[in-house]
Design a protein around this nucleic acid. Structure first.
Lengths: 147, 147
DNA sequence: ATACTTGCAAATCGTTTGCAATACC
DNA sequence: GGTATTGCAAACGATTTGCAAGTAT
């Protein structure tokens, strides 16, 4: 049952057919089931973090495979990359346009309520230029409490 | 004369007394004189880029020293770090609050005219939290022309 | 003289890749 | 059976660090 609902991710959400292997299922379970059950609690993980989680969940997956799967999930539109934090790539289960708090203490990204932030008067772009993405990061101070 | 105006940077702008060594003077000359002469043409460089520049200018400086000096200049308030681009740290001679275009093709950061962008209705912060910095990056598409 | 700086090389961190062994359809 | 996927280990790029040698005050 759990296995089925995760498989659906590969069947319905993704474009590319990703074989539902043991490793990918385990990763998808952690990423998308946790996210789907909680009320829009989207996840923000690094490869290292996710690797620790799978191992903790009792499934053997190599770190290289976690990296590869995160990239494949991203290519399939299941995840979005965020690279706003020094030297790390975060993968976000929320693939819609939105912005983040960054909490340096816990090294965490937290979604900003999209209704609570807006950009006004976008600057004129150079002629012919197009926007790929607008990313806002509100970096909190170190002593800030956890959200 | 040039040497003197660069030395002033160390005397007046910085808090910490940084010894005006041959290497630091060469780096400061590239970073701050170029920036000061052009009308607010602030610079955005990575350590590698700056290292190439010093070598090209005929001054032998090791890459490690460039890294170290960039960090020291930052600690002294002469530079600001920006980490919005995957796996690279850009150092910005504009230390005031401002935002950036990122041009993937040329791997460049470009200042956004501060009068042309604004955030409205900042989200409520978790109680006790304080903002360290707000960073907006407008990532342009790959095919976008140079600015 | 002495404390600060440098440069090198090695170490580290996050990430990617080549390739042989393995799992899926 | 044939192709996709995995895991390991090595390679990688960006950055940091330990330490001996050099330089500024």
């Amino acid at each position: 049952m759990i296995k089925n609902s995760v498989s659906e991710i590969f069947c319905f959400r993704g474009q590319q057919s990703l074989r539902p292997t043991r490793q990918r299922l385990a990763l998808a379970r952690l990423l998308f089931l946790a996210a789907d059950t909680g009320a829009q609690h989207h996840r923000h993980v690094t490869a290292e973090q996710l690797h620790s989680e799978v191992l903790a969940s009792g499934v053997e997956v190599s770190l290289a495979t976690v990296y590869n799967c995160l990239k494949q999930f991203t290519a399939a539109g299941l995840l979005r990359e965020s690279m706003v934090v020094a030297g790390k790539t975060y993968y976000d289960t929320n693939t819609t346009d939105h912005h983040h708090f960054y909490l340096p203490e816990s090294d965490q990204l937290v979604d900003i309520d999209p209704t609570k932030i807006a950009l006004v008067s976008l600057p004129e772009l150079p002629p012919g230029a197009e926007i790929e993405r607008v990313e806002v990061v509100i970096r909190l101070k170190n002593k800030s409490p956890k959200i």
